Amino acid sequence: MASSTSASVEALSQVFQTQFEDICRDIQGSVLSDIIAPWTDDDGAVTESCILGPSVEGGMPERLAVHLRDNLVNFSAFDGGGSHDWNVAMP
């Protein structure tokens, strides 16, 4: 018999997954499948930098960043970053 804790974790996981899948369906057309893509500056000019894909055209959508930030464990103490950085493009 499952404990109430595991049942609540399972319910929360299902809600997370459903919302995540909805967001992914919404952004499906903007996902770039290239493994290595040129990085462009704010004016659209190609730079000498590249990003490792797949990536989302225009950066991570705010809706996805908020969903991840609000529902996942913050590991910022381990790597010096935080969930607030997930939608920031870094060369």
Rank of each mutant, 00 (worst) to 15 (best):
I36C: 09
R63T: 14
V66G: 09
C50N: 09
L32D: 15
V66L: 15
S49P: 03
L32P: 08
E57L: 10
P38W: 01
I51H: 07
G59C: 07
C50K: 12
A45D: 12
G59D: 01
S55E: 00
V56F: 01
G59Y: 01
I36K: 13
G53Y: 03
T47I: 09
D34I: 00
V66P: 07
R63D: 13
M60Y: 02
A37L: 15
E57G: 10
I51R: 05
E48K: 14
E62G: 10
A65K: 07
D34W: 02
P61F: 00
D43W: 08
V56T: 05
L32N: 15
I51D: 00
W39A: 09
G58R: 02
G59M: 01
W39K: 10
C50I: 01
A65V: 05
A45H: 13
L32G: 14
G53W: 02
G59Q: 03
W39R: 14
V56I: 11
L68G: 06
P38Q: 04
P54L: 07
L52P: 00
S55C: 08
L64A: 12
L32K: 15
D34H: 05
W39F: 12
D43Y: 09
I51C: 05
L52I: 09
L68S: 06
L68F: 05
L32H: 11
D41W: 01
M60N: 08
V56Y: 00
P61G: 02
V66R: 15
